[in-house]
Design a protein around this nucleic acid. Structure first.
Length: 424
DNA sequence: TCTGGGGTCCTAGGACCC
DNA sequence: TCTGGGGTCCTAGGACCC
C-alpha cells in the first residue's frame, strides 16, 4: 500500500515577506510579478478582500488603497532561499522527497516500516517548519499524489476543523472528499477541461471518476486517464526530482517594447548568460537552446510577430561564451525589423552530467572556458551578482525592471542582513 | 499607458530515411 | 496505371501546473 504526504506552504511568497515583517500578520498583503505587473501571491485577508490570482496590478490600485494592503515586488532570491530551508527540514523525514514546486513537496512514506500516526506526524512537521523557518504549512496524506493534493486542499480550506492536517485514509473519506471537491479545482483539470466537464453536468471530482476510461482518454488524453486512476486510489503518477530538470528557461517581459536589434541582442545575451549560470550550478552541460521573441499579444491593434529558433551545439557546454554565441546566432535568424518585441527568452535543453562527460576525440570544447567560468562564478558569489560578466550583456537581468516595492535580501545579501536593536 | 516567469507532458503532421 | 510501412526527428500547438 502506498502512502504520500504533500506539504504545501500557505500563501508562500506572502509568508516569506512576513517572516521579516511580523507586523504584517493578520493584515492584507500581495506580492506582484516582475515589472510589478500582476498579483502572484495573496494573503488570506487579500483573498477575502476580492483580489484574484493573476490580477493586473493597475486594475486593483483602488482596492489595495481601500484595504491598506501591503504590496511587495517579488524577490525570488529570498523565496528560493526560504524554500531550500523548508525542503531541507522535510528531507529529514524521508530521503524519498520530491520537490514539486518552490513551495510544495511530496514525501513518499510507502516504505516506512510501520504505519505512522499521520495526524501526529503532520502536526510535527507543521511545528518543525514554523519553529525553524517561520512559514505556515498544510499537510495532506493519501495513497496517491492526486488524492494527497485534495487532502492538502481540505486541510488548507478548513484550518479550524483540521488543524492544517488532513488524511484520506479510508474509502469512506475518499468518496466524501471527491463528492465535495469541485471539478475545476482538481489538480490536472484546467480551465478548458473543467468547462467541458461542467457543460456535461459533471461538477465534482466524484462525477469525473464515474466517466468511462475511453471517454476520458479520448477527451483528455492519457494524462486525464492517469488522473482518474489516481483519484480512484491507484498510484500511477511518477515524478522526476527537481535535480533532473529537462529545461532551464530565462525570459522577461519588457516594460517598453524593443525594436532595435542591438538592444535585443544585449537582452538575449544576458538571458543566455543567466541560464548558463544556472546550468553550471546544477552541474550540467546542455546540447541545444531555443531563443524566442514575441510582440505584445494584448495589443491587438499592432502587427504581431512571434518566432522561435532551436540551435544544436557542436558539443555539450555550459560556458557563457559559447551559449551566448549560439543564442545570438539564433536571434539573428528570427529577428525582423520593425516589430516591437515585448517578451523574449532563452531555453537550454538536452542536458548531460558535467562530470560524467567524456571528452571525445572530436570534442571542440575550449577547455580554457571551464576554468574561466569557474573563476567568474566564484567572483560573483563573493562580490555580488553581475560583478563580473560578458561586456555584451549590458546591465544584466534586472535592467529596466520596474520593482517599486522590493524588500531587502535579508538572508542572501550580507549588506541587507537584518539588524536587531537590543535594549538594556 | 499598465497583463509574470518557469516548468511538464501530450499530440499531430511533415520531412526524411530505409 | 499501379504508388508500403515503420522509424526518427523536428516543429508547432495545446493543456496543464505553481
Amino acid at each position: 500500500m502506498s502512502l504520500f504526504a504533500l506539504v504545501d506552504c500557505n500563501n508562500f511568497f506572502v509568508s516569506c515577506e512576513r517572516i521579516f515583517r511580523p507586523d504584517l500578520n493578520g493584515r492584507p498583503v500581495v506580492v506582484l510579478s516582475s515589472n510589478d505587473g500582476c498579483v502572484i501571491a495573496r494573503s488570506n485577508e487579500a483573498k477575502a478582500a476580492g483580489v484574484p490570482m493573476g490580477a493586473p496590478a493597475y486594475q486593483y490600485r483602488e482596492l489595495f488603497e481601500k484595504y491598506g494592503m501591503a504590496i511587495f515586488s517579488s524577490n525570488f532570491e529570498i523565496y528560493s532561499d526560504i524554500s531550500a530551508r523548508v525542503m531541507s527540514i522535510l528531507s529529514s523525514y524521508t530521503p524519498d522527497l520530491q520537490m514539486y514546486s518552490i513551495d510544495e513537496a511530496f514525501l513518499d512514506l510507502s516504505d516506512m516500516s510501520d504505519m505512522p500516526d499521520v495526524e501526529a506526524l503532520g502536526q510535527k512537521i507543521r511545528r518543525h517548519v514554523m519553529k525553524w523557518v517561520g512559514v505556515p504549512v498544510s499537510v495532506g496524506f493519501a495513497p496517491t499524489k492526486a488524492l494527497a493534493k485534495i487532502a492538502t486542499h481540505i486541510a488548507k480550506k478548513f484550518p479550524q476543523r483540521t488543524g492544517g492536517v488532513y488524511s484520506i485514509d479510508s474509502e469512506e473519506r475518499r468518496v466524501k472528499a471527491l463528492k465535495w471537491m469541485p471539478v475545476e479545482e482538481v489538480w490536472g483539470i484546467g480551465r478548458k477541461h473543467a468547462r467541458m466537464l461542467t457543460d456535461m453536468g459533471v461538477r465534482r471530482a466524484y462525477g469525473f471518476t464515474m466517466l468511462s476510461d475511453r471517454f476520458v482518454k479520448e477527451k483528455m488524453s492519457v494524462s486525464g486517464l492517469r488522473l482518474k486512476m489516481e483519484l480512484e486510489g491507484r498510484s500511477v503518477i511518477e515524478m522526476d526530482s527537481i535535480q533532473s530538470r529537462k529545461n532551464i528557461m530565462v525570459s522577461r517581459t519588457f516594460e517598453t517594447p524593443i525594436v532595435e536589434f542591438d538592444v535585443l541582442r544585449e537582452r538575449i545575451t544576458a538571458f543566455a548568460a543567466t541560464a548558463a549560470g544556472k546550468l553550471r550550478r546544477q552541474g550540467s552541460l546542455a546540447r541545444s537552446l531555443v531563443v524566442y521573441i514575441r510582440t505584445n499579444y494584448h495589443n491587438t491593434s499592432a502587427a504581431q510577430y512571434s518566432a522561435n529558433r532551436m540551435v544544436r551545439f557542436d558539443f555539450d557546454t555550459n560556458s557563457d561564451i559559447e551559449i551566448v554565441k549560439y543564442a545570438v546566432k539564433a536571434l539573428g535568424e528570427i529577428y525582423r525589423e520593425g516589430y516591437g518585441i515585448k517578451k523574449a527568452g532563452v531555453t537550454l535543453m538536452e542536458f548531460s552530467d558535467e562530470h560524467a562527460h567524456q571528452l571525445s576525440m572530436f570534442d571542440e570544447r575550449d577547455l580554457r572556458h571551464i576554468e574561466l567560468m569557474r573563476v567568474m562564478d566564484r567572483v560573483n558569489v563573493e562580490y555580488g551578482k553581475m560583478s563580473l560578466r560578458l561586456a555584451s550583456q549590458g546591465g544584466g537581468l534586472r535592467e529596466k525592471l520596474k520593482q517599486e516595492n522590493l524588500s531587502p535580501n535579508y538572508t542572501t545579501d550580507i549588506n541587507d542582513i537584518i539588524v536587531v536593536h537590543a535594549e538594556e
